[in-house]
Simulated scan of single mutants.
Amino acid sequence: MNDTPLRVLVVDDETPARSRLRDLLGDIAGECPNLLAGMAANGLEALRLIEQGGAVDAVLCDIRMPVMDGVELARHLGRLPAPPAVIFTTAYDQYAVQAFELAAVDYLLKPVRAERLAAALAKVRQRRPPADEALAALAPGERRHFSVNERGRILLLPVAEVRYLKAELKYVTARTAEREFVLDEALTQIEQEFAGRFLRIHRNCLVARAAVVGVERAGEQDGEAHWEILLAGIAERLPVSRRQWPTVKQALGL
């Protein structure tokens, strides 16, 4: 590893933990050159700092945090053009640590020791970012945000604001009450992750169950009768395929 200082971002919801990591980075700067790129109290703050301050080489990240936890942060960081290395700091027991090893992310057990931190940073340049699938396995619950890449920036789209998602070619369009966003994700993957939130109404369309305000019969005059979904805040009516109608009808209690 060369002598170019690593730009390190510290993310932890506890002030003493952030201060300790900052001090340890200073202690090991001689053997492992580094620069403190900033400190954040949760994943959302961390992403905002990265957007404002430029590239980061490594993120020291707690796992359990409010607003956005460390695993979801790592998933968003993995979508950056040049994703930083993510090193989790954790109080998990040995069994959980083995899971992080399988996910190909580094980890530091709390309380973090200087020699262990130096060893983790020494491996940063040789480590690949963890696969999204591995991170999803570590935190099988739903994400709170989708990642949207626009003009080199990551926009965080709250999942709760999405009215529907449509598959178009190799991308998925997510529609909110205000606008559309393009996601680089598969519709089937989204359906599996958010099975309780989104309902498939067509082979290429999912709708937010909570946004459905009704259904209407349409197309009877031209002989192509079908049902359409009405969504809150959206003028567009979305057709339900014949194949999906029985499932939709049951899911909506019609």
Rank of each mutant, 00 (worst) to 15 (best):
D3G: 06
A17Y: 03
A17C: 12
D23T: 15
L25A: 00
G26E: 04
D27M: 13
D27A: 15
C32Y: 05
N34C: 15
A41E: 11
G43K: 00
E45Y: 06
E45D: 13
I50T: 07
A55I: 01
V59C: 06
L60R: 02
L60M: 08
M65E: 06
P66W: 08
V71M: 10
A74D: 04
A74S: 07
A74Y: 02
R75Y: 05
L77C: 10
G78S: 04
L80W: 07
L80M: 15
P81A: 06
A82G: 01
A96W: 00
A99W: 08
D106M: 09
Y107R: 11
P111T: 03
P111D: 05
E115K: 14
L117S: 12
A131F: 10
L135T: 08
A136L: 05
A139S: 15
A139K: 06
R144P: 00
H145S: 02
H145R: 10
H145Q: 08
V148H: 03
L157S: 09
V162Q: 04
A167H: 01
E168G: 06
Y171V: 08
Y171P: 13
V172N: 03
E178W: 09
R179E: 09
E180L: 05
V182M: 09
L183K: 04
D184I: 00
E191A: 15
A195M: 01
R203Y: 11
R209L: 11
A211M: 03
G214L: 02
D222Q: 13
E224P: 14
H226F: 08
H226I: 06
E228N: 07
G233C: 02
I234N: 09
R237D: 10
L238Q: 09
V240W: 00
Q244N: 13
V248H: 08
K249V: 05
Q250L: 15
L254H: 05
